[in-house]
Write a protein that binds this DNA or RNA. Structure first.
Length: 414
RNA sequence: GCGAUCAUAGCUCAGUUGGUUAGAGCGCCGGUUUGUGGUACCGGAGGUCGCGGGUUCAAAUCCCGUUGGUCGCCCCA
């Protein structure tokens, strides 16, 4: 019998990687509460149309990366490839309009059928924050300041820069798009094959082409600035002022666009060059048009998401929580008492590990190797029960408490 | 979907131009030593060399296919 293999692009996370992962989530949870974002949970799968209508039928995510399947009732369902569409659906179907402006946060697994590579998996995980029903640029600012604080608290803000752009309102975006198509059409033959293809499907994407053949044309291409309406220009101005006032550094990147159709106005990415091709560590923007595509009333909203795996890689290896008390039962006759002592220590709130299996004479060595702050040994010497407590980490703050708990434990009882 | 590269013990890896029963370190298990001590020594378990074909007297080694990892492209967090 051969063992089934894990699905391609999925991961089994353990050890320091798992600790890093948990650290990212814990930090996000803490920061999200500081900004008073409310925790929500939404389904891992939705009707396929939730994603196809909101992301856009022609996007790669919808056209070739979704895990879609028919359930037993014949409905087409899809494992969520992103959070925003599902949150928007939940907002509309649960009447969360009454809570507007609604600040929500969540995290969990997402699924995309892509070729796995560094920092990219078929089941991956994101943290996500959204503000729904807020048309003001202050909402964009709050979200960005929160993202900035999160990265700083994770200790990874050094290699990361915030790239910022505006896509303008619907009018700005449409006229810019027309101008871009016209421009790229005029130089079409000199563009890379990929970009010629993009011209048909998603012309804005040509702007962040990595192909050197496209670079010169991208530099000459019309920028959004020439097409911004006064309202859109003012809006973006408020966003940048807010960031400056909050002390968040940013750089303007006129070529920054978003892959999904629903974005308007502010678009941003926190990028690093430390993760190879997967440079975006956190990305998002304003999606004022999304609710309508799902049949709701026009509702302004902003949000971002960040890949937990990518953040965890930047955070680097993190050790598991410290071991405060190690208990070695060096004699089989002391095993049950050692187990009772371990339970007592844990009830006192000490992270405790019990060493009472395998070779009796090596248990002390293994306990010491585990690197505890305090090492307790239970043994039988010359027919007499002996117990010792050894403080290995002189800087351990709760040493006295452990000693008290140790003394209070009734060793005479059997 | 395209390209490159890799796959040997639980882990990290050696294995010379194809040539006997495929090795090391670490880890694990047991023993001896030590006896407030993470020591030293001895021994043990564990591998159909990713999988499937082919070439050959002979394949971990060469060829083809396949699966998976890694790194790019595409796309995206």
């Amino acid at each position: 019998m051969s063992t089934p293999k894990a699905i391609r692009g999925t991961q089994d996370i353990f050890g320091s990687d798992a600790e890093s992962f948990a650290h990212v989530v814990e930090t996000f949870e803490r920061v999200r509460k500081l900004y008073r974002f409310r925790r929500i949970e939404i389904p891992v799968f939705e009707k396929t149309e939730v994603f196809s209508r909101s992301l856009g039928e022609t996007t790669d995510v919808v056209s070739k990366e979704m895990y879609s399947f028919e359930d037993r009732g014949g409905d087409s369902l899809t494992l969520r490839p992103e959070f925003t569409a599902g949150i928007a659906r939940a907002f509309l179907t649960n009447g969360w309009q009454q809570h507007v402006p609604l600040k929500v946060a969540t995290h969990g697994p997402l699924f995309r059928y892509e070729r796995p590579q560094k920092g990219r998996y078929r089941q991956f995980h994101q943290i996500d924050a959204e503000i729904i029903g807020a048309a003001e640029p202050q909402a964009d600012v709050e979200l960005l300041v929160m993202a900035d604080q999160l990265l700083k608290e994770l200790g990874i803000s050094d290699g990361v820069t915030l790239q910022l752009n505006t896509l303008g309102d619907a009018d700005s975006r449409d006229s810019w798009r027309v101008a871009l198509i016209a421009y790229f059409q005029s130089v079409r033959g000199d563009l890379s094959e990929d970009s010629q293809d993009r011209l048909e499907r998603n012309p804005l994407r040509i702007l962040d082409s990595k192909d050197p053949r496209d670079k010169a044309f991208v530099a000459e291409a019309p920028t959004i600035d020439d097409y911004l309406t006064d309202d859109a220009r003012t809006f973006f101005g408020h966003v940048t002022e807010g960031l400056d006032a909050a002390g968040v550094e940013w750089t303007r990147l006129p070529a920054l666009v978003r892959g999904l159709d629903y974005y308007r106005h502010t678009a941003f990415e926190f990028v690093t060059d430390l993760l190879g091709a997967q440079g975006t560590v956190l990305g998002g923007g304003r999606y004022d048009g999304l609710m309508e595509s799902l049949g709701g009333k026009p509702t302004p909203a902003v949000g971002w998401a960040a890949g937990i795996e990518r953040l965890a890689m930047l955070v680097g290896d993190r050790a598991a929580g410290v071991l405060e008390v190690a208990i070695a039962a060096e004699n089989p006759d002391r095993e049950s008492q050692a187990a009772a002592l371990a339970a007592a220590m844990r009830r006192h709130g000490f992270a405790t590990e019990l060493f009472a299996t395998g070779s009796a004479r090596k248990r002390y060595d293994r306990a010491k190797k585990a690197g505890p702050a305090v090492l307790i040994s239970l043994d039988v010497r010359d027919g007499i029960n002996t117990q010792s407590l050894n403080l290995l980490d002189k800087a351990f703050a709760r040493a006295d408490e452990v000693g008290n708990a140790f003394d209070a434990f009734g060793f005479s009882a059997t």
